[in-house]
Design a protein around this nucleic acid. Structure first.
Lengths: 123, 123
DNA sequence: TCAATAGTTAAGCATTTACTTCACTATTAT
DNA sequence: ATAATAGTGAAGTAAATGCTTAACTATTGA
C-alpha cells in the first residue's frame, strides 16, 4: 500500500530532513546532503526511498539532479490522520448519546480522574 | 525523536489496522488480532511498538488488556504535515512575488507544460 | 478443582535497513 | 585535454524487523 511506503519514508530522520529542505524549494542531491552526516551514496539511497513513496520527484539536467516534493502525496498521508480523528470523534459522539440515554447505569463514573497517575511513562 | 517512532509505527499495515480499529473505540488484544492473519504473539509485539510511539495506551483489568488511542499523539504527527504544507506555500508565495518583480527575465516560461510526459512513473 | 480463556515472554530465523567504501560515468570549467 | 564536480551502482556488513513456535502465568467459569 502507498501509506506503507510513505510512512516508512518519513520514519527516518535523515529523510524527514530532506523533505523539510525540499518543502522550502527544489534542491540538488548535494544540497540535500549538506546537513546530513553521511556519505553522498547514502543520501542517494534515501532519495530512492523518498521517490519510491512518491513524496519526492527528481530530474537530471546536465550533471545535477534537482529534487522537489510532491505536495499531493504529502496531503494523501495527512488525510489518513484526518480520517482517524473523524472516526474518534464519531465514537465519542455515540458514547455521549449512550450516556445521555442511560443516566443511571454508571453511578461510579470517574471516581477520581487522575489518582496521582503513578508514573506509567517511565516503563 | 518522537516522529521516528510514530511514523515507524504507522508504516506497518497491521499496526495501521490496529489504530484504525482503536479509532472506533477501545478494544482488547484479541479484538485487535481478529482481522489480522498472524499469531496473538505477533499482535502483542505490534502493540508494544504502538505503545512505544505513544499512539496507543493500554491497561489490564482482570485477564483482559484494554487498548485505546491517544488522539493528541495522532495530532502531533498530523501537525508535521501542516508545517510542511505551510513551508511549501510560503516558498511558492516568494516565487510568485519574484516573478512579478522580474517580468522579463523568463521569456521561455512553460514552453510546453506536459510534452506528452513520457511515462516516468513506471521506472 | 479443573479447564478454558487472555495474555506474555523467550528464542530462533529469514528479510530488510542503513549505512560504508570503492570503482566508475557524465558534465563542466580551466 | 585535464581536472574538478555531481552523481551512481555494487558489494559487504551490523543491526533492526516481523514473524514463528513453545512454554508459561494469571484470571474466570463450570
Amino acid at each position: 500500500m502507498a501509506l506503507d511506503l510513505i510512512f516508512h519514508a518519513l520514519a527516518d530522520p535523515a529523510r524527514r530532513t530532506m523533505v523539510e529542505r525540499l518543502s522550502r524549494g527544489p534542491a540538488s542531491i548535494r544540497e540535500l546532503a549538506a546537513p546530513l552526516d553521511m556519505s553522498l551514496s547514502a543520501v542517494i539511497q534515501h532519495l530512492h526511498i523518498l521517490e519510491a513513496s512518491g513524496l519526492v520527484h527528481s530530474e537530471k539536467v546536465g550533471r545535477v539532479r534537482t529534487c522537489h516534493i510532491e505536495p499531493q502525496v504529502l496531503s494523501s498521508a495527512e488525510q489518513w490522520f484526518a480520517e482517524r480523528k473523524a472516526s474518534i470523534e464519531h465514537s465519542l459522539d455515540l458514547l455521549g448519546k449512550y450516556l445521555e440515554e442511560h443516566p443511571d447505569e454508571h453511578p461510579d463514573e470517574h471516581p477520581d480522574k487522575h489518582p496521582e497517575e503513578p508514573d506509567e511513562r517511565n516503563r
